[in-house]
Write a protein that binds this DNA or RNA. Structure first.
Lengths: 337, 337
DNA sequence: CTGAAAGCGCTTACAG
DNA sequence: CTGAAAGCGCTTACAG
């Protein structure tokens, strides 16, 4: 910048004004053009770090993924999520950093991200039902938006309506005549999404006057393998279910495998419905009936929201809940046929 | 920091030395401990932006993904790649930024990332065979490592041995008795990976004394849908192939669908082998024979490499090529049986 | 219409 | 063993 000023024969102040196109500060059009030309000729690029220091902003947002290595690598939606996030962030001049915070790690490594001014705000994925750290972060005034709801309605979050999605899935099964319906969750019930999907399952049963049987409820743990043992347990029940609602397509993969391993067929012997609508679901045999999760939209909303928070705009509503959509394919069938 | 210095009754210099634990600069152990305690009590966190300005480093690396929105969102390996990258980067104190550079966008948005000192270096994915921009970037001295090989041996890159992987796949088909073997690539042949996999295909055929038939060669375009039409074209040939090597499992999904739509069966009527070993491959019907791509390892190597480049370390070899592994499942069978 | 000066929060020669 | 001072590259009141 010093060089540009020298070459154009003006002060650094003038260069700053010209480059940033400050409206009030008048600079004659002639010198403005001259400065711009010199800057271009010198291939000048402003130093972001210096700018950050004076503005106090980094224009950077961190996506913190709280998963283990294995869960992280197997996340089918991370790329969609990131894509949506960037669609919202980049036009506003924000950049996206990805930060892994393995859940069993001690202390919140991500809190330091904003304390040390590496990023302006945090997007936190996979929240737990009860998470004092997030509460603390938010109460400290740290700009955060959660990717996934919690039970704290004042903390900004975006998620799909998990209860609704699960209810719709289970109602579909009930409409097909099933009464004995098992559930394998996507993750332990300490995760909000699992918890809400379980609630949706219970509600659909209750609404139909079906008594919930706790032996029919198991939990997965994000991965495909984690669906195998729970499914076997369900199959080995004295009175096995005729249909299963699995809270994640990925977990359903393992469950389907378990069913096959027992020589049972889907949907003939057992109906299976998943959740998420992973891209390969339609290529499975049979194509998997599921509940669509709009991952890119989720990212877009979360991105738009953190921008508002960072600008200090009032949020119309701190929590946004996106609708899901039932995708009926061929892994579910009517009991009566 | 000023507050810490005041509270501890020392200069900011002393605080800086104590906090950074500078060895040569002696500070009495007593005052060191005092300073550390005060810093803790005041919940002091250093301002990274200020540090960056003086050191001239950002400790940040950008992963630039040169794909369209759709290709990006469908990238099955992005999360694995990122996981590997972070495993290498975080212990070294580097952070990872993700930047989308859609291929048809005008100008290199990512060049500015390092010019404006937002990041120290670039990890560039999905390189083309011929890319003057990357050449330019490297010649300017921009620290880059490519994720995927190019034909420029002096530019640091990490990739799997695509030629070798493709050869092994096709040799497997030949060993099963196939002579008329089709190929559908993962992407247009302007991408290095596609190009090299095609070369591997050709080499395996040539080694077996089989004449390549150009009508048997088609190209996909990253997505599952892009495998459909090429497969149909293959099937509609007067003399269709008995086996097909598809350069990507994702593209193979569409190809398998096309085969099904024609009422043909895999592997009975046609053997299919993919590339990448996407996690769901083993859950397909039939489970997909494929070539394993070690995505996390790729990320780890790329991450380790950019760290070396940034440190100015000499690279033992600018290009690293990781081995692939044939995964035989049930989508390929012997012709003679 | 334009420039000199202070300041953002650090590090690091340099002098005591 | 410790501190005063300069400097990293910008922006922005403030004064002319």
């Amino acid at each position: 910048m010093r060089d540009v000023a020298a070459a154009a024969g003006v002060s650094r102040t003038a260069v700053s004004f010209a480059l940033n196109n400050i409206p009030n500060r008048n600079i004659s059009e002639a010198t403005r053009q001259r400065i711009l030309k010199v800057a271009r000729d010198l291939d000048y690029a402003p130093n972001t770090q210096a700018l950050n220091l004076v503005t106090g902003k980094t224009m950077m947002v961190a996506l913190v993924v709280r998963k283990t290595t294995q869960q992280f690598a197997g996340d089918a939606f991370l790329s969609e999520m990131i894509e949506g996030l960037m669609q919202a962030l980049e036009p506003e001049g924000y950049h996206l950093m990805v930060h892994a915070a393995h859940p069993n790690a001690s202390g919140s490594t991500y809190r330091d991200l904003v304390r040390t001014r590496k990023v302006d705000g945090l997007l936190i994925s996979s929240p737990m039902v009860h998470d004092p750290e997030i509460r603390l972060l938010h109460d400290e005034g740290t700009p955060i938006v959660l990717n996934g709801a919690t039970d704290e309605p004042d903390i900004p979050s975006v998620d799909v309506d998990n209860r609704q999605g699960a209810s719709v899935a289970v109602r579909h099964l009930i409409a097909l005549g099933h009464r004995r319906i098992g559930h394998i969750s996507n993750a332990p019930f300490t995760y909000t999404a699992s918890c809400h999907r379980l609630e949706g399952y219970r509600k659909a049963l209750a609404d139909a006057g079906i008594l919930a049987d706790e032996r029919l409820i198991h939990h997965g743990d994000f991965t495909d393998e984690s669906g195998y043992a729970p499914m076997l347990a369900l199959l080995d029940l004295p009175e096995p279910p005729t249909a299963v609602f699995v809270g994640s397509d990925t977990v359903a993969l393992g469950a389907l495998d378990a069913i096959r391993s027992r020589g049972r067929r889907v949907p003939d012997d057992l109906s299976v419905i998943g959740f998420d609508n992973i891209p390969v679901g339609k290529y499975l045999t049979p194509p998997l009936t599921t509940v669509h999760l709009p991952a890119i939209d989720l990212g877009r909303h979360a991105g738009a929201m953190i921008v508002q928070v960072l600008r200090g705009d009032l949020l119309p509503s701190p929590t946004v809940s996106l609708p899901t959509r039932l995708i009926v394919r061929e892994s579910t069938r009517s009991l009566s046929e």
